[in-house]
Design a binder for these strands. Structure first.
Length: 503
RNA sequence: GGGCCCGUAGCUCAACUGGCAGAGCAGCAGACUCUUAAUCUGUUGGUUGGAGGUUCGAUUCCUCCCGGGCUCACCA
């Protein structure tokens, strides 16, 4: 695109003509009396007769979404992003200069209009323009008004264009904002304190994931973008904040897919003196309330299914469900006990076609079997509970069963939405778990947890019995907006830059 | 990273088995006093993502590269 587009040159020429007429090309402000949405709302039900009697005056601003000319009668459609309103333009109703401005307007320009509100013969709510103020030029031609912008790559790369021409795109992000606001309302209403913990951490802890690495110049030190806020939030619980939460970004240097973006938003919260049973109930209540706030109901259409957030959610014990599904698939008995035995579980997993590595214990294998057989079948919200200790280095063991922790994951739409557990608060056991992770790390597992001495020290001061949970906001919004890709619910998803051999 | 698919005008899309690269919208010029995907007449706009190759001839076939989508693997 080295040669300037003809249409861009034409639009620049029109702008130059306005300047020649003495019109400021980029004025600093426009005092509108009300928004277009407000006009539409105020007069949405007013009849033309009433409007003729009242002659309501208004002064609005917006982007031109279409221009239709009929010789002496002309129509503009203005948008304030939310609503659209028609403007009736004729030369004999406004100063000569204003009509000269009108003649040089393009689809996409910003204008201010004042005039009276009336209804046309076709009953369309319209402003009869008494003046037009030029506010800003759209130099680049916008996508077509009828089909909009459908190229997904362009929609992600140039989200501003997507938002201008695709109303549904805007609605997704409005719903997202309502989801986040609804969660804050829910948490605040329960006495939780919203906090912000470091995103740049000397140790990337709190989740099993590969971090991004960065560098601080003055301190000359390596820093990691956080993979989770977990260990800092629990330090706060040690410090006496009994109910804390954080809604913010996590960063994981891993694959990109329809369900994974390198940066994603999590709600993470901790509450002293509760266990994972309490968290599951609270999650049911939260999601029902948030769904109702954001969408008006408990049900949402996703991927050809209707997902209901009505409580109670289904509950599945991980090893039990893994054994049951494996037995069904293999046509021979598989017991929960098999899922606890390294060799029996490995045999089952291999028979099912899953990879079993030498370092994998029974717990990791049982989890693999479960995820392989169940994950995409869990369309309705389902709590999967009682995870193997082996795959849960920060969770508390069940009192009568050291191989199992009090942990659950919530699945919906075929993917994981939340993860919560009774927090491990025994510093001796936590050190043992970290040491186990170090062995995995030494064996080549780049996602294994690192030793965090300061966190252990915090635990030594005494973390009360605590329940903690993380909820993936992007995925929740996917479900609530029926978006099949996480990129549809992230305003600016990460894209590879365009190189010279393109564009 | 593997597999499959896609990339043509500003946008949305055509172009049969390899035979002059087109339409609608947008734009430009004109007509039109209430239209709303306005209509009508005329018209501009292309290195077909990039670089090579095969061929008399490539949007079409082949190779490599760039970007994207779906999917598998990894992960949340």
């Amino acid at each position: 695109m080295s040669n300037e587009l003809e249409q861009v040159a034409q639009r620049k020429a029109k702008l130059a003509e306005l300047v020649a007429l003495g019109v400021p090309p980029y004025p600093v402000r426009f005092d509108r009396a009300e928004t277009i949405s407000a006009v539409a709302a105020a007069h949405g039900d007013t009849t033309g007769d009433v409007l003729e009697a009242d002659q309501p005056q208004t002064r609005v601003a917006g982007r031109i979404m279409s221009i239709r000319s009929f010789g002496k009668a002309n129509f503009l459609v203005l948008s304030d992003g939310l609503s659209r309103l028609q403007v009736y333009v004729r030369a004999d109703s406004m100063p000569a200069l204003d009509f000269e401005i009108f003649k040089r307007l393009d689809f996409g320009d910003h204008v201010g209009v004042s005039g009276r509100v009336f209804r046309t013969r076709t009953n369309e709510l319209t402003i009869w323009a008494a003046s037009i103020t030029f506010l800003a030029k759209c130099l680049l031609p916008l996508p077509e008004k009828w089909h909009g912008l459908t190229d997904v790559e362009a929609r992600y790369r140039q989200r501003y264009l997507d938002l201008i021409v695709n109303v549904e795109a805007r609605k997704v992000f409005e719903t997202r904002a309502r989801v986040v606001a609804g969660i804050r309302r829910f948490m605040n209403g329960r006495g939780f304190l919203e906090v912000e913990t470091p995103m740049m951490q000397p140790l990337a802890g709190g989740a099993l994931a590969r971090p991004f690495v960065t560098h601080h110049n003055t301190l000359d030190m390596e820093l990691y973008l956080r993979v989770a806020p977990e260990l800092y939030l629990k330090r706060l619980t040690v410090g006496g904040f009994e109910k804390v939460y954080e809604i913010n970004r996590n960063f994981r240097n891993e694959g990109i897919s329809t369900q994974h973006n390198p940066e994603f938003t999590m709600l993470e919260f901790y509450e002293a003196y509760v266990d994972y049973h309490h968290l599951m109930t609270m999650t049911e209540e939260m999601l029902a309330e948030v769904a109702r706030d954001a969408t008006g109901g408990l049900e949402c259409a996703f991927n050809g299914h209707v997902i209901s957030f009505a409580a109670p959610f289904r509950r599945l014990s991980l090893r039990h469900a893994a054994a049951e599904a494996a037995a069904e698939r293999l046509g021979r008995p598989v017991t929960e006990l098999d899922m606890r035995d390294r060799e029996a579980a490995a045999a089952v997993a291999r028979a099912l076609g899953f990879e079993v590595k030498g370092a994998h214990g029974a717990g990791k294998i049982a989890t693999t079997v479960f995820e392989g057989l169940w994950e995409d079948r869990l369309v309705q919200p389902t709590f999967v509970f009682d995870f193997p200790t082996e795959v849960s280095p920060l969770s508390k063991q069940k009192p009568d069963d050291p191989d199992t922790v009090e942990r659950f994951e919530l699945y919906a739409g075929g993917f994981e939405v939340a993860n919560g557990f009774s927090e491990l608060n025994d510093p001796v056991e936590q050190r043992r778990r970290f040491e186990g992770q170090l062995k995995d790390r030494a064996a080549g597992d780049a996602e294994a947890h690192q030793m965090d001495e300061d966190y252990l020290r915090a635990l030594e001061y005494g973390l009360p019995p605590t329940g903690g949970e993380g909820i993936g906001i992007d995925r929740l919004v996917m479900l609530l907006t029926g978006s099949p890709s996480i990129r549809d619910v992230i305003l600016f998803p990460l894209m590879r830059p365009i190189s010279d051999s393109r564009s």
